[in-house]
Design a protein around this nucleic acid. Structure first.
Lengths: 262, 262
DNA sequence: CGTACCTTTGATAGAGTTCAAGAACGGTGG
DNA sequence: CCACCGTTCTTGAACTCTATCAAAGGTACG
């Protein structure tokens, strides 16, 4: 039942040899791993930026070598206002992004896992407009923006950015039209889907974020999130123990999300 | 006082000779204007996609010639699920974009005026994920996606898309953390800013959308929007008469938005 | 000039926030 | 290994904001 669920371990892809942390040479240059990574050797490439490059483009891929960087839990990958010069592909771990309003209020705008690309908000103004913080010890590939001159990579970048725009539409929908329980159901189903794509169990996982961060992302108070988790559990939809979640009834959750028609 | 406010007329840039509607040859090929447009002759180019191309790139700009298309009020520029093959730059008029949920609920995700680029949500999947509908008789330039191979235009496209991502962050912030009155204040100030950039009055303008559409965009009911307009008027912040808005007190509106600290 | 749509305003109800307090967990140091 | 502390989570109760329902008035378009 707990087959491929990793408890408090980092979200490394299942088929991946555990590369992170302990078996990497200790010498680092300000958080940048000494040994760079070849895209061809990376088992994230079906999710990552070069995704979609045909097999015939293997030689192109072969040229792509990126420096890696570790970001420890609680540290930031970049900060709002910081200068932009590269994108980041998450290799392992888990991040949250957030924006801060003038008066201090902040909101989590996304959670990001292996294979996802970060930093695109900086392209337009040459400086980032959000904070990105690791929710567990994580590792990213640094993709210098200058490298993206390559025409085929440009296309890929367009696609990645476009999908991000579509994702944002979904979040707006969630925040603008859904009720609290619908938002949380949508959130859980979305997480589930993304875990599956990375070889994890669709039904059992550990939340990397706090109730407060979930609430911020969903436009709810942390108490409402907590209450809804309890309610979902009472209704037999899920099991919750702190950050450990089991989804028991996917269709049930889906019907909560689509509409509470009972 | 009503200096450069256009009443029910389309939102054409002030310095622009009124090109739309009546002084264009009537013959059209399914909504596509017969005479194409040169970017060099377009006075939107400082806002539009080629924005940021240096003067030295004038010859590059000179090559850019786009077909125009008219979209009458209530008609759609594209629909969710429709195949993607080009982007659109708004030349004149006003659009709304919206997404529809499976159960029929829909939400307005943006309002778009001259110089803004539409259609980027289609790049990732080759089909659009939103509907775009003209709120008044409008005109767009059709920018075939294939044309964007041009390296300099690619950079521009990245910037435009990135700014769109940043805009989305702002909307999420608005929907996730702001109270109703803060949302409406932010909305009005945002409109004002965009009108200014197009040569219109910052303080006086006509809303092109209904209360319901504003409410949908802001995650509020149309009644709440209406009530807040009335309240803002009572508080001396604005003047409202149906769709005609005067902003009387920008700092006041800003303080409503930043925080209701009184 | 009439009709359909849009807007305003009131009354009511409900969803979610806020405030508060206790419980569970996780990491740290003795 | 255990006790401690801070953080996170849960749950209750009261309140607030906003949605909903309803009805009347206004506009604009055909």
């Amino acid at each position: 039942m707990q087959a491929n669920t990793l408890r408090t371990e980092p979200t490394v892809m299942r088929p991946m040899k555990v590369v992170a942390r302990n078996d990497v040479p200790k010498r680092r240059i300000s958080g940048v791993a000494a040994c760079p990574t070849h895209c061809t050797a990376c088992n994230l490439r079906e999710l990552c930026l070069p995704c979609g490059l045909a097999a015939s483009d293997a030689e192109l891929l072969g040229d792509l070598v990126y420096t890696r960087k570790r970001v420890k839990r609680g540290e930031s990958l970049y900060r709002s206002g910081g200068s932009f010069d590269s994108l980041y592909a998450v290799r392992s771990g888990f991040f949250k992004s957030s924006v801060v309003l003038e008066d201090g209020r902040d909101q989590v705008t996304g959670f990001h896992m292996a294979g996802e690309v970060l930093g695109m908000d900086g392209i337009g103004t040459d400086s980032h407009s959000s904070d990105v913080i690791a929710l567990e010890d994580s590792e990213v590939c640094i993709i210098p923006y200058a490298h993206l001159e390559e025409p085929r990579l440009q296309r890929q970048l367009h696609k990645v950015m476009s999908r991000e725009l579509v994702r944002d539409q979904g979040v707006m929908m969630l925040l603008g039209t859904m009720k609290a329980e619908e938002r949380l159901a949508a959130f859980l189903l979305n997480l589930s889907t993304r875990f599956v794509a990375r070889g994890f169990s669709p039904s059992e996982f550990h939340l990397r974020m706090t109730r407060e961060e979930i609430g911020s992302y969903l436009g709810l108070s942390l108490e409402t999130v907590s209450r809804l988790f309890s309610r979902f559990q009472d209704d037999g939809l899920i099991t919750v123990q702190q950050k450990h979640i089991c989804i028991l009834d996917v269709p049930g959750l889906r019907s909560v999300m689509v509409h509470d028609n009972d």
